[in-house]
Design a protein around this nucleic acid. Sequence first.
DNA 1: AGCATTTGACCGTC
DNA 2: GACGGTCAAATGCT
Length: 300
Amino acid sequence: MEASWPETLPSDWSKAVNELVQGREFANQLNTILNNPMENDGSLSSQDLVTKVMNSFTNSLSILNRIGSNEEVSQSKDSAVTSKFSSVKDPTVGYKRSKRSRTWTKESTILINDGYAWRKYGQKATNNFPYPRNYFRCTYKYDQGCQATKQVQRVGEELYRTIYCGHHTCGNSLKVSQLSSDSADADSSIWITFSSNDQKDNKNYKLTKPDVNPSFTSSKSTKQKGGNRENGTLLDPKHHQYSSSSDNLTSPTFLPQFYQADLISRENSSDCTWMNSLDMDVMLGGVVFHNGMMQFEYTE
DNA sequence: AGCATTTGACCGTC
DNA sequence: GACGGTCAAATGCT
C-alpha cells in the first residue's frame, strides 16, 4: 500500500506531520548516541529519546484517529469499504444499521495484535467460508463510548481477514509494548523507518522485544478466556492490560514493556537484516507498519 | 466476585 | 425467508 498525501494538509494533518518530524529528529539523536555512545553529552539518555519517539507516535496517532473519526465514508486502494454494518440498537425501533461506517480490511497470515483491547461479542457461521466469523467491539465501548468494532474471518488454512469498522475514540490506542511483543511473533521485532527525500538518509530502526523486566511482566495480566482455548479457531491475542500498582510510571497504559525495549539502528545491526522484517504487516488505528515501513492511510 | 467468552435469540436488510 | 450483526443470559476462568 502506498501512502498518499493530500494536496493541502488540514491543520490536524500538519500537527500529525509535525509530531512525526519531531519523532524523526529524536530518532536521529538516538541514532547518533547509538553510533557514538562516547559522544553522548548526557542531556538525554537513549531511553529518554525512545520515550520521546514513542510519544510522537502516540500523539500523531491520536490526531490521525481524530481525523479518521470525523471523516465520511472513504475508500483507498487496499481498503475495502462497506456499509453493511454496524448495527446500532435503537430502544424504540430495535436494531438499526448505521450505513456510513468507515471500514477497512486487512489480511494476514498471523492474527494481528493491533494494540487495542477488544472484547468478543459474537460469532456466526457464514456461507462464504467454512470458518465462523468473529465479532469484536472495543473493550471501552461503554466506559468511554468508543464505537470501534472489528470482524475477524478466517479465510484459509493460515489466512485471516480482519475488517475494522470505525476508529477508536477511547484514548487507549497504540500499546507499543503489545505491538512489539505480540504481533511480532515472526521474529520478535518490528522495523520502523523514518524516510527521507534522499533514500540514503532513511533511518531504519528495529524495535526489539526486550528481555523482560520481572516487575513489568508481573504487572501485565494476560486474560485469555474460553474463546482462546478453542483449537483450530480464532485465537485472539489481545486483552492484555497493564496495572500501575507495581511501578511508579505515570502512564502505565503505554510505558511498561516498551520502556525496556531497545531501539537498534539498522546500520549497527549485523545479525538483523532488512529482509527479515518483510513479513511484518501490522495495523494500528490508521497507521500501518508494512514491510517494515510505517505508512499512513489517507483517503478522501 | 468479577470479567470475558459462548451461543441461541432477536432484529434489520435484502 | 435467508443472511448478517448484535444482544444478553449462561457459562467458564482467574
